[in-house]
């Protein structure tokens, strides 16, 4: 005869079912989920501070007096080197009290240039990210939703873009940009031109991801259900498919923002990015690397740290957004 024994486990009864529930909007849930993602929250605050400093504080802080009379925290002119009383450039001065980040090989204050460089790097990152997100999503969505000729044509074009060797093309076009006189001034020099260039070179991967998402989502039963209800293509795309494809779009976009900042840095490093004397983190890292071998480490370390921390923060925020946009992530109802 079989000997069987069942023992109970303990636990409280589950009676949540059927109780009236306060309406919680999607936005509340989104914020609540984002709040739980501590790394993303810290990163958001960090990035916010970086943006404020780069775009608002940096340009405001300026010293009109003679170079030697200006004291920290009033920042120096980012184009002019510091001079001593004998009018000699203070070249490669190590960090100290009134010059916390030191000076570079032309005697310019590194702190000033890191703050100003953020403006260029972040402009490139954000503008490229927005361009990539819109181009990639539109192309990917059209290709994924309308199979056949539309899909084929768009995807072959995408393949072409993806096939372009990024750095050589960027170098050539980056170099040609100042020569293209038909372009407006803001496109020819500075971060905007680089941002547009990178935007047009980097959307291919996102388009492919979005297309794959659309291809699989359009076969989902909830999309079929919407079609059975008589919903239009527009409604299906914007109400049913796109919201469910947001996670990969956001994650990929944040990756692109990070990548764009780094590629801009690489271009500046190679001398094909934003024109001097406008500082960028990449350009500073390049010149900093040159003097670092002689022991003047500060320009390289401070510019590279700013670059790495900002890119990391962007990626963490992407992570947090993805989780926050996922409705299946549970939030305790109170």
């Amino acid at each position: 005869m079989t000997d069987l024994l069942n023992r109970p486990g303990d636990g409280a009864s589950d009676d949540a079912e059927g109780l009236a529930v306060e309406p919680i909007t999607q936005w509340d849930l989104f914020i609540a989920r984002l709040r739980r993602h501590r790394l993303a929250m810290i990163s958001s605050i960090f990035l916010f501070v970086v943006i404020i400093i780069s775009f608002v504080v940096g340009p405001l802080l300026k010293c009109d007096k003679g170079a030697t009379e200006c004291e920290f925290p009033q920042l120096w002119d980012h184009t002019q080197g510091l001079k001593d009383d004998d009018d000699r450039l203070l070249v490669n001065i190590a960090p100290r009290g009134s010059i916390p980040f030191g000076t570079d090989e032309l005697g310019r204050d590194v702190l000033t240039r890191v703050v100003r460089g953020g403006q260029a790097s972040l402009t490139v990152g954000i503008v490229t990210g927005l361009l990539v997100a819109s181009l990639g999503t539109v192309v990917g969505a059209l290709a994924g939703y309308y199979p056949g000729v539309v899909d084929q044509a768009l995807m072959r074009f995408t393949d072409l873009i993806l096939g372009l060797p990024l750095l050589p093309v960027a170098i050539v076009v980056g170099r040609l940009l100042p020569e293209l006189t038909f372009l407006p001034d803001w496109m020819q020099s500075g971060p905007w031109g680089i941002a547009f260039l990178l935007g047009f070179l980097l959307w291919g991967s996102l388009a492919r991801i979005v297309r794959a998402e659309f291809l699989s989502l359009r076969e989902k039963e909830f999309v079929e259900a919407a079609r059975a209800a008589g919903a239009s293509d527009r409604r299906i795309i914007f109400r049913h498919i796109l919201p469910n494809a947001m996670s990969p779009i956001i994650v990929q976009t944040t990756l692109i923002i990070g990548a764009a900042i780094i590629i801009e840095a690489a271009l500046s490093f190679l001398g094909f990015g934003v024109r001097p004397p406008t500082p960028t983190w990449g350009g500073m890292a390049a010149s900093g690397a040159g003097v670092a071998v002689r022991g003047f480490w500060w320009e390289l370390v401070f510019s590279a740290s700013a670059l790495v921390m900002t890119v990391l923060a962007v990626n963490f925020i992407g992570d947090g957004l993805r989780d926050a946009l996922d409705p299946t992530q549970t939030i305790e109802r109170k």
Binding site: F222, A228, A229, G230, N244, P327, T328
Partner: peptide, 24 residues
């Protein structure tokens, strides 16, 4: 067809795939 959809509807097999997870 749009009008006729009021007359004919469908219930799907997979109760997990047939509801949009991002809609209430």
């Amino acid at each position: 067809m749009r009008i006729l959809r009021e007359e004919m509807q469908i219930v799907f097999q997979d109760p997990f795939a047939s509801l949009n997870p991002r809609m209430t």
